[in-house]
Design a protein around this nucleic acid. Sequence first.
DNA 1: TGAAACGTAACTTTGACTATTACGATTCTG
DNA 2: CAGAATCGTAATAGTCAAAGTTACGTTTCA
Lengths: 150, 150
Amino acid sequence: MAHVLVHMAYHDGAATSDTIARMLNTNPVVVRRTMAGLRDRGYVTSGKGPRGGWRLTRPLEDLTLLDVHQALETASVFTIGPTADHAECPVEHLANRAIAGAMAQASAALEAALARVRLSDILAEGQALRVAMDQGRPHRCPDTAVVEAQ
Amino acid sequence: MAHVLVHMAYHDGAATSDTIARMLNTNPVVVRRTMAGLRDRGYVTSGKGPRGGWRLTRPLEDLTLLDVHQALETASVFTIGPTADHAECPVEHLANRAIAGAMAQASAALEAALARVRLSDILAEGQALRVAMDQGRPHRCPDTAVVEAQ
DNA sequence: TGAAACGTAACTTTGACTATTACGATTCTG
DNA sequence: CAGAATCGTAATAGTCAAAGTTACGTTTCA
């Protein structure tokens, strides 16, 4: 999604779910479901009807990867974690607490790292690319020429 | 598994896959598959035949949660991560790099936190429990009386 | 020798996530 | 106003990896 938001910033007009779906090799309904999280937080707006679609409400400087992540987050970020096989076993309890503590530290580190990256920073490492996009020269995702065309 | 290893340390003789499976509410084959990772690293040994089963090869002081985690790790620890929808889109490339960087930092934090916890530390917070276990008074996982019995 | 264990391949089940279909509601344009 | 373009969302189906099962071979002890 970060990828999509960057494209949107350099794209005139709204981006339809259909267009974005092609960018992500997925389906417009999935895009709507996903973008809904961003809309709930006010980062984008959606419009119906012709000329409708999705628009950024703020510059890329004002969005961090953490913002995006939290807007989309559904479940835990980790594939591991404490279990509840025997909730009453005191050994398991203590083990779970130790593991949860480690995960909390990792989680905090992840959020801090994501918060450090503004979406505008993403292009910073690709100077040539940024210049091209600032000048309106269309950049295209392969196989989705539609996206930046128009 | 950390939970199981602690139990094993206070348990005379070997623990069979079947016994461990009951502790985890799972199946002996799954236990063997999982314990294999620990055996490969030399943290436990397995024996066949009567009196066979799993045994710790070292005291809990010499095992950290990181050791256990790395022994069992199969895939990524994260449920999120960079995609490869359009490998050739430079914007996606840069976005992926930024995300991968954040994940690497979180991953390092997780490993550091896990490394700080020795399995012997797990019982440290439950003094009364530790004393009971040190004195050989059987502690039992509910529904798995078998485990510490004998 | 026979029962107790592990080792492992093969197959099945489960569950979460993704994709699809369908249809209603809204909005723009001519 | 008609009609097409879009989003919103419920319901259903598909996908895939992890977990669970079954089956059977091998080893080891008494």
